[in-house]
Design a protein around this nucleic acid. Sequence first.
DNA 1: AATATTTTTTAGACTGATCTAAAAATTACA
DNA 2: TGTAATTTTTAGATCAGTCTAAAAAATATT
Lengths: 223, 223
Amino acid sequence: MQVLSTTEENYLKSIYQLLKDGGEKVGTNEIAALTGTKAASVSDMLKKLAEKRLLSYQKYHGVSLTEEGAKTALLILRRYRLWEVFLVEKLKFNWDEVAAIAEELEHVKAPPLVRRLDEYLGFPKFDPHGDPIPDEFGEWSHTPRMILQEVPPGSAGKVVAVTNSSAAFLKYLDKVGIYIGARIEVLDKVEFDGSLELRVDGDKTSFLSREVAANLQVILHPS
Amino acid sequence: MQVLSTTEENYLKSIYQLLKDGGEKVGTNEIAALTGTKAASVSDMLKKLAEKRLLSYQKYHGVSLTEEGAKTALLILRRYRLWEVFLVEKLKFNWDEVAAIAEELEHVKAPPLVRRLDEYLGFPKFDPHGDPIPDEFGEWSHTPRMILQEVPPGSAGKVVAVTNSSAAFLKYLDKVGIYIGARIEVLDKVEFDGSLELRVDGDKTSFLSREVAANLQVILHPS
DNA sequence: AATATTTTTTAGACTGATCTAAAAATTACA
DNA sequence: TGTAATTTTTAGATCAGTCTAAAAAATATT
Ligand SMILES: [Mn+2]
Ligand SMILES: [Mn+2]
Ligand SMILES: [Mn+2]
Ligand SMILES: [Mn+2]
């Protein structure tokens, strides 16, 4: 496992994220958009990371991560999510405030630190947004989840993750009383715009737009 | 308060340390030795930091920190020592293992993080080595301390700080059972080499060399 | 006071990360 | 299928931080 710069780590993680919710390959402009750089800079970095065998790169045809690149990305993600847990569970930050800080902390690489932090936090399996935390080998358990938007009316379940961690989205969820672990009953799906009518924790009744419901993951209760 | 790079922060903290246990001005070579760089690199950095009004610099005559430079250094030291407390108190690292990790963590500058960390740790006034932790204004209370080496035989006191934080030194203290808070009675001072015979916590009797005793600070018990 | 030694600065070069502008390749579409 | 639009790469600069080697200044020694 090579020692990477903060910048290299940030690129690697970005590429991982883009591949995860995209396809086989990811393009230069996409990476530039996500990392806040220009395509020219990305081209340079892709060459460097390909040189280090972290990704496979054919000019003009995008990149994908190698085995080693993917594993490295997952170990960065592990640190990122462990710090997120720390910031929320221990320092009492709200879940919409932790992204930027964890973005910095994730680059402190001392392995004993990561191990002890994990232990101190009680070996959490999920971060404050419901995302799984890879273990020290870059592995995690995949539990089957359903997108709330696709849950048929009449079903009930539990919110287990959000697939958008922007402060705006998370603050909105706070306002309507939705959180990781909240019990949800889908009462109706409005034909016109695809919005959902639902009950949260048995009492509150809310309407959620299609966009919002598409960014919530649930596990259905057996009915 | 300007935004400084990690490198600039490290230089500033080093210069602060050198001035603290040295005199009025500190020279280029000294800084190079402490930061592990070459004199030429230091010259460049001194120009840059002088430009930013963090230190006053006359070519060939060494540097001293300005008011703003000193305050900035103290805020870096604050973050460093708070992280040291975290690593020892919460993550259960030994006091000889935390320097390098805190050296990295100190550069995460998000102000809410530092505030919450301080709160979470219970607003500690001293780090694991007994060094005072500056408050958010860069201030701390100076309690009068005595160097163990200078304590007259027959006196008793409490260890409150170490003035050397090398792993070798700290491990040695572990071995002879000396720690921050340990009660010490000075039984005798050996004329020949200046070493001390003392009792630790009422039972164990040790001999400490002059070098070791010179790096321990105590507060004497009123007798 | 003159010379030798030490310290510090400058000159010039290199690396990593970034940019803009221009060239090249790919893809879209008429 | 040939041209237009888009995407990507290259060329050439800049900036921060570092280095070695050489020049300059300060300090120590005779
Ligand atoms: Mn990051
Ligand atoms: Mn998260
Ligand atoms: Mn540092
Ligand atoms: Mn300390």
